[in-house]
Simulated assay, not measured.
Amino acid sequence: MEYLKTLILSIIGGIVMTYLNAPLPWTLGPIVFVALGSLVRKRPFRWSLRVRNIALILLGYAMGRPFTLETGRAILSQFPLMLTATLITVSAGGFTAWLMFRHTKINFTSCLLGCVPGGLSQMVILADEIRDADLTAVTIMQTLRMLSVVFVIPFLTIHVLPPASHAGTAQAVHQAGSPAEVLTFAAVAVLGAITAKKIHLPTAPMLGPILSTAAFVVITDSAAPAVPVPYINAAQILVGAYIGSSIDLTRLHQYHGMGKVLFGGVLLVLCVSMILGIAIANLTGIDLATAFLSTAPGGLTEMGITALVVGADSSTMVAYQLTRLLFIMLVFPYIARGIVYLYRKKSAGQTFKD
């Protein structure tokens, strides 16, 4: 019954946002209405992680189906750019953390983990493993950052940037498949998600289908059936409902002075991402919408949905976002611990001198 309430509220949110011409209405509507609904009734709405993962499998398949061998070669040639963009974006997030530390009473460790543009769940897990990190502060900072990005980037991509012209997305071409083809690719996507979870890949329910579908298309040289638009919208509702149910707005009042610095930092990172996007578009020839989504400090899920809606090159976007995601998950924890260690050592030395 609780899930049904969440679903109804999410659908209403999607409908309202559609009439308001909001960007990504079927994702943002559920997020806003479920989060605000939880605030009004003073207890959170609930949503199934399993249902969200099923929706992510569908979205992952939709993002993996345009992949070709030529796309793979182009992506490999851009790897130095991907790594450079990742380092610049993470550095901008680190500078935001320093500003947050200087203008609030939150400790440096928490500021660092709260401001770096990684996934909400990944940063919260890392904060739980590092001593003196304020888990609540990290969660609030990452939540506010995620909300800012989820609202601003789709708006800029849809209403400000030149329209994308990539023809391989589900929105651009409706290529119906036979029942046998649909079942085959569905099995490929599901097996990809299961395998990705077994080997502990980040965002496994989405990343697994992306990789398995792309690999199957390249190996078999076959065209993957498109996902009808209503299915994409339904998947967005299911994902948005989960994000909205995970946001606790009642905790925002606990940290005064955080919002202004954090939003300023988000604006800084967005400006850096836009500059990087323009540079990459000029260097590689890809359209600006794809380049911006590739460098934007959002999560793979949110940027992937935006890419599907605006017709951007989802394969290139996934490659750039995946590079940053893997860097943050595999390399950044060691960097964060090293920075925190040096900071503690410096602070201890100053205390000893005093």
Rank of each mutant, 00 (worst) to 15 (best):
I88A: 09
I88Y: 11
I88G: 10
V90S: 06
S91V: 03
A92R: 05
G93I: 10
G93H: 05
G94N: 00
F95Y: 15
T96L: 06
A97L: 05
M100G: 09
M100T: 07
R102G: 08
H103K: 14
T104I: 02
T104K: 04
T104Y: 01
K105C: 09
K105I: 08
K105T: 15
K105L: 03
F108A: 14
T109D: 02
C111D: 01
C111N: 12
G114V: 01
C115T: 11
C115G: 14
V116G: 05
V116W: 09
P117I: 01
G119F: 01
G119E: 08
S121M: 10
Q122W: 04
Q122P: 01
M123I: 09
M123P: 00
M123F: 11
V124H: 07
V124W: 10
V124N: 09
L126P: 11
L126R: 08
A127R: 02
A127T: 04
I130C: 13
I130R: 01
R131G: 13
R131Y: 15
D132G: 10
A133F: 00
D134M: 07
D134R: 12
D134Q: 03
L135K: 14
T136H: 02
A137Q: 05
V138F: 08
T139A: 13
T139M: 04
I140M: 07
M141P: 07
T143P: 02
T143E: 09
T143Q: 04
L144Y: 10
R145F: 13
R145P: 07
M146R: 04
M146W: 07
L147H: 09
L147C: 11
S148W: 02
S148T: 11
V150D: 03
V150S: 08
F151P: 00
V152W: 00
I153M: 02
P154I: 01
F155G: 08
L156M: 06
T157I: 10
T157Q: 00
V160I: 06
L161Y: 01
P162T: 09
P163M: 12
A164I: 08
A164C: 03
H166K: 03
G168R: 07
T169D: 06
T169N: 11
A170I: 07
Q171K: 15
A172H: 14
A172R: 10
V173F: 12
H174P: 00
Q175M: 14
Q175K: 12
P179F: 12
T184Q: 12
F185M: 04
A186V: 08
A187K: 03
V188G: 10
A189S: 12
